[in-house]
Each structure stands twice: as C-alpha cells, then as structure tokens.
C-alpha cells in the first residue's frame, strides 16, 4: 500500500519535472514533494502507522525515492542554469574586430633604441657605460688623441670652436682620454654621446649626431681580440649570420687602424641596392690604441695595450630601421616616432 503510494509520488514528481519549463517551476515541485509539507514528508510522518518490523524497509524506500527525485531535480536545474548562462553569453557576444582602446604609450626615438641595443650587447660583455663632456678642451678632442696642432685631421673634421681652448667635441674619442686619466686599469668601457661637426643639414649629414666610443685597455690585448669583439657585436646587432671584414685605414689615435664592414643584412652579402651591390656595409672605425695616446694619459705603453672603436649611432639607426633621410631624426614628427 505504501509502496504503491511512493511509486505514485515518484511517477508524478518525475513527470512534473520533465514538464517543468523553468527553474521556478522546479522549485515548486521541490517544495510540493520534498518540502516540509510535501507529499514525501507526509509519508514519513505516517510511519508511525507502519508495523515496527517494516519501518526500516519502508524508511529506506522513502529515502531512495527522495534521493531519486532530488537527483533528477538537480540535473534539471543545472540544465536550466546552463541554458540561461548560454543565452546570456550569446547575447553578450561582441564584434572583436572593432578598434581597440589604445594605451597611450609614447615611443622611444630610434637613436635611443639603437643605443640601448648597443649598450645591452657591450654590458653583456662586461663593459661600463660612461659619459663625457660635449663642450670639450682642445687637448681631449685632439692633442691627447695624437692629433697635434696643424695635423691635417683637424681640417677633415670641421670643428665648431667656442673660445680659448674650448670647442664642441667632434668625436666621442675624447671620452677615452677622460677614462684613461682616472688611472684605473683595466678599462672596458663604451661612451655614447653627442658630437658636432660643421656640416650643413641634408639627407645624410647633420651638424650634430651621436657616436658610441669603445675602449679596452689591459695587458695582452691584441688586434685579434679587437676583431673577435667587434665580430661578436655585429652578430648580436645585425643577426647571427652577419660576417665582418676589416680593412686597413688610418686614424691618428690608433695603429694599426681598420674600418669594419658587415655583410649586408638585407641581401646576406649577395649584393643589392641597399649595399650598392657590394654585399658589404661600412659600419665603424677601430684600431689598437696608439702608444702615444696611452703615454699621454700616463699609461705604461709597454705593459698595457688596448683597442678602441667608434660607431655612428645615426648610421646604425638609419641602416637597421631603413630610414632614408637623416633629417627625419631631428624633425620629431610624431608619425615618424610612432613607428618605433
């Protein structure tokens, strides 16, 4: 008799759940069947009429029925919730191809980007990065670099003069001398900075531009070390496949001196318009520090040797980022800067 009633309740409940169309209805069913005044609770209440020996069995039966109904109710509820969430998400779909809200971040100047790349490479090799004055004494810009008065190199670099012994430095090489004069050895440094030459502004010239000077002084430094260091630098700056070529050249403050070409990073050395068909691009000047320069800065030129190099920052920026006109670097048009 109770069996049948339970069965009836179960059937009715499951049918109602199956027909329920929203979570509210499910809740109604839960209350009417499982609630305090619900049908199943009513059965439990009438257990006192059941024979004591039957009670455990009937109790078990009621609980089973309750568990089954609860399970189906929960399942159904989850289905509804999933459907609701689904609908909500569907309604919230957006057009991801609409424009972004850009973060108003500024842009570094290409000179700075190039400089930071150069700095990173040399810092990784243990170099210090130091500065030096832009308004310089003749001694540091020329004399201490083995360029005495009347040396033709003074004419080659059209110098801006101030007054007395002061001029605008024509090369960051002057920073070498300041570093050597500190008297701390060994030296491993690069010195970036602004230099000045009396050139009219055009696509490839500017009266003020930037160089990075490098100087290493220690015992047993060789020309082979210079080659190795700059070959490593070139690979890091222009790519692992970059090759280097050293050609004899002349600078008053180094001997032997060289100019370094790198294999064209556009065509890989096959020759293209970028490298004017030669496959090589001239990058920097370098050499072994002239003993006169060491001596003038109070360094024992018998014991210590060194190498130095100087690279034009704008030259690297123009080449690396394929900028075709140097004037762009000083106009500061935001449409130019934003590309870096």
């Amino acid at each position: 008799m109770i069996n049948e009633t339970l069965d009836e309740i179960r059937k009715k409940a499951l049918e109602a759940i199956g027909q329920a169309s929203d979570p509210d209805r499910l809740n109604d069913i839960r209350v009417s069947v499982l609630g305090k005044k619900g049908e199943l609770t009513g059965i439990l209440k009438s257990m006192k009429d059941v024979a004591p020996e039957d009670r455990p069995r009937i109790g078990q039966l009621v609980n089973d029925t309750r568990a089954e109904i609860e399970k189906v109710l929960d399942e159904q509820k989850q289905k509804f919730e999933a459907a609701i969430l689904d609908a909500k998400l569907k309604s919230e779909a957006i057009d991801v191809t609409l424009p972004s809200k850009p973060l108003p971040v500024g842009h570094k100047h290409p000179n700075t980007i190039a400089l930071e790349e150069v700095e990173r490479i040399f810092i990784g090799m243990g170099y210090e990065v130091v500065g030096g004055p832009e308004i310089e004494r003749d001694y540091y810009n020329f004399k201490a670099l083995n360029i005495p008065d009347d040396h033709p190199a003074r004419d080659e670099q059209d110098t801006f003069y101030i007054s007395g012994q002061f001029l605008l430095r024509t090369q960051t090489s002057s920073a070498q001398v300041h570093e050597m004069e500190k008297g701390k050895l060994p030296i491993k440094m690069i010195s970036p900075g602004r230099v000045f030459r009396a050139d009219e502004v055009d696509a490839t010239h500017s009266p003020s531009f930037h160089q990075v000077e490098g100087l290493v002084i220690d015992e047993n430094i060789t020309f082979a070390d210079l080659k190795g260091t700059l070959a490593e630098f070139s690979k890091k700056l222009f790519g692992e496949l970059t090759e280097t070529k050293f050609r004899p050249h002349h600078f008053p403050f180094t001997e032997p001196s060289a100019e370094m070409d790198v294999s064209c990073f556009k065509c890989g050395g096959k020759g293209c318009r970028f490298c004017k068909g030669s496959g090589w691009i001239e990058i920097l000047g370098c050499g072994m520090v002239h003993p006169n320069v060491l001596r003038m800065s109070g360094i024992d030129s018998k014991k210590y040797k060194g190498f130095a190099f100087g690279v034009g920052l704008e030259r690297i920026a123009l080449l690396k980022y394929e900028i075709d006109d140097m004037r762009l670097l000083y106009e500061n048009d935001i449409r130019f800067l934003e590309q870096f």
Partner: peptide, 17 residues
C-alpha cells in the same frame, strides 16, 4: 687583416653596467 685570428680578450673579468 683577414688572416689575423678572431679571439676575445682573455683577461680580467669586469662587471659592466
């Protein structure tokens, strides 16, 4: 110049920065 070896300085380690 091309026949001169390619090496790195072998001397004192320095901390750059």
């Amino acid at each position: 110049y091309d026949k001169i070896p390619v090496t790195l300085p072998k001397n004192s380690a320095t901390t750059g920065g």
